[in-house]
Design a protein around this nucleic acid. Structure first.
Lengths: 216, 216, 216, 216
DNA sequence: TATGAATGAGAATTCATTCAT
DNA sequence: TATGAATGAATTCTCATTCAT
């Protein structure tokens, strides 16, 4: 509310924060690349250009670090979603925008997919304990529910759509393709990572989703 | 002397095929549960009730065993898909059947999802080298293409649908929900593993897919 | 003493002998290449194109096999030395011939050098127990002693030469160069394995040895 | 407070250089005794009274440790050779001194012979990559070449002697006897390790070498 | 005589984590 | 806050050897 400049953190404290962040970034990379089991604390330290011991100083353990990375990752995507200002758009436009955003976000943040996979492998052991993550995610579904309701009322969208189901579908259509792109490329003998292939996929996803939500 | 006498169940089976299979089954379980990185060769041996050394006798290494498991897993699902006799059904029925089958197969074979995840994490490093898997998967897309073409001709389905895109969508809609069910349950604070929730999801998926393929 | 033809061995027995020999040859190669510690029973079986179990059938253990190889190797060189007919030559010629022979034999039988090295590493643990080897080696020194004595008497060679010392010197001058040729090449930055280098060495050795034994 | 108080001998030295050295010394011993293939990392750790893991902390692998030991060993002998001040002596005296030194050094450092053997078995695989060793060894041959040239000019030594050949001969005459002393003792039924036998050998070697280099 | 299957003991190497400063 | 040194418990893989036929 005021222009009040926050007291400058001491150089020490600043370094501390910078170190913590460096670890977090390095860890995200490492966990995304190798999974929880395959990630190496040593490599994280090397990438962060910090002593291994510091990781234990700032984070309790490898597992705790993994949870911190997960929370950070979720915070980032939810933060980005907020910037979409979906409530300012016509319902159908909002759905399309969310769909395109989701696809692009996954495309640009492969680490998100990978971290999610790792957490799934471990049966949400880490996120299951985190209240913070639940709190972060609820608003999205609420917003989506409002959009659907608005669309139902103005007649642009069909009714009876569960916002959570819709969100999972939007995510799933993008996720499966991107997460499996190497495997699918190998299996189908087609390069699914090529730009053209990617555009076709996004186009297909929009067709499927909008075909579903739009009033027939 | 009679038919009743069974061969004595010796602790050392000395039956190559049985041993190999036991390893494969135990490995599938272990890899599915812990991922490639988290899987332990020792545990695989214990579960198979065989000497650890035998694993290296029959399979070259942990990685080679992983590939063997992957190939085996793919063979199984493609085998099951063949039993659907999709070509005997009306196009729309065939699509629905494939959708339901895919959902149910993933539901009943969580190890498939998990193994796929692991392979994705490793960028299809294993499957990329396997010709066998590619050969196994091509027929499905061909069959689906034929169904779509048949539907287009008889007017029941819309035209211009890429069978691969469709298959990836069918798989993705099921996969994301099931693979992430623990994480999503934690995030959205809803128990997605409950039978009712599962039925709702299948119903939703069918709506989405059939809504997309059916001629408007 | 008689023309009596030995009874033909049964085909079985022949095969047995052939198998034994195949193992011995493969083992010599493997031990020479990798030393006793680095040799692999499995590889010996593969090279002999025989089942691993057979090695234990014909030879008691890896160590016993190593001793058998050593004895065989020594038998071979002593056998070859006998063919030199040194006693038919003038003393100085005999010395030169033995020197050249030793050099050439080592050159053509690098496995001899290597096996000797291995045995030295193990402090003659195997040969120490073998009476056979001792019996095989005595005649050579006796012959050399006779030659030196003959040379002393006819004035062509100086007196007071210990035949064992001389033999060890002849062997050492050849052995060190050949056994260390890779290491020495690396150390001195010269290719000691080239034909020209080898000829120079033999020439040098003859100069040294004959310069020593010839009456000044 | 006084000069008397020594730092408490902590069981965990936490002294990098001391630890590294302890590993190096223990490794030299182990490699010399058992060869590269027969050496056990565990035993090296035990002898050094250090954790096995530390070996990998300071040295990359067993092979890298072996190379470090080899380099260290060569450094030692070349260092000792420098102390001979051969250039201060008359040429013939210098040759004799080098010959005696080589014999004594080999006698007192049996690990040198053994390590050299191991490296030969592996075809100089380790030293072949080491520039350091080449640099260490060049000066010796240069010095020896200068001595020979000096001798040729003052008429005390014959001309045309290749210093490398001479050095290999000096080394070989000592090496073969000492390295094979157990095998030779077994073969010839004489105890070549007895002091008297050793003196006779050195005397013989000097006769051979000086007989070769001295102007006739 | 021959062989594929099986094994226990150990091999090098790795890893998350803690110590001492 | 930061770090180099140190470690115990694994972890994958290997090896000589034996079993059962």
């Amino acid at each position: 509310m005021t222009d009040m400049i926050e007291p400058p953190a001491s150089p020490r404290a600043r370094d501390a924060e910078r170190s913590r962040d460096a670890i977090l970034v390095a860890a995200r990379d490492e966990f995304a690349r190798h999974g929880l089991g395959g990630a190496r604390v040593e490599r994280i330290a090397e990438r962060a250009e910090l002593n291994k011991r510091l990781i234990y100083y700032y984070f309790e353990s490898k597992d705790a670090l993994f949870l911190a990375v997960l929370e950070d990752t979720y915070r980032n995507i939810r933060e980005a979603e907020k910037q979409l200002h979906l409530t300012d758009l016509a319902p159908a436009d909002a759905i399309r925008r969310l769909t395109e955003f989701t696809w692009n976000y996954y495309l640009e943040h492969p680490e998100f997919l990978s971290l999610l996979n790792s957490e799934n492998l471990h049966l949400a052991r880490h996120l299951g304990d985190s209240d913070r993550v639940r709190e972060m995610n609820s608003p999205l579904i609420r917003t989506l529910g409002e959009i659907l309701e608005r669309g139902r009322q103005d007649g642009s969208l069909r009714g009876g759509i569960d916002p959570m189901q819709l969100y999972i579908s939007i995510a799933g259509l993008a996720y499966f393709y991107l997460s499996n792109r190497h495997t699918l490329s190998a299996i189908f003998g087609r390069d699914l990572t090529a730009p053209k292939a990617r555009h076709e996929r996004l186009s297909h996803i929009c067709d499927v989703i909008l075909g579903y939500v739009l009033r027939a």
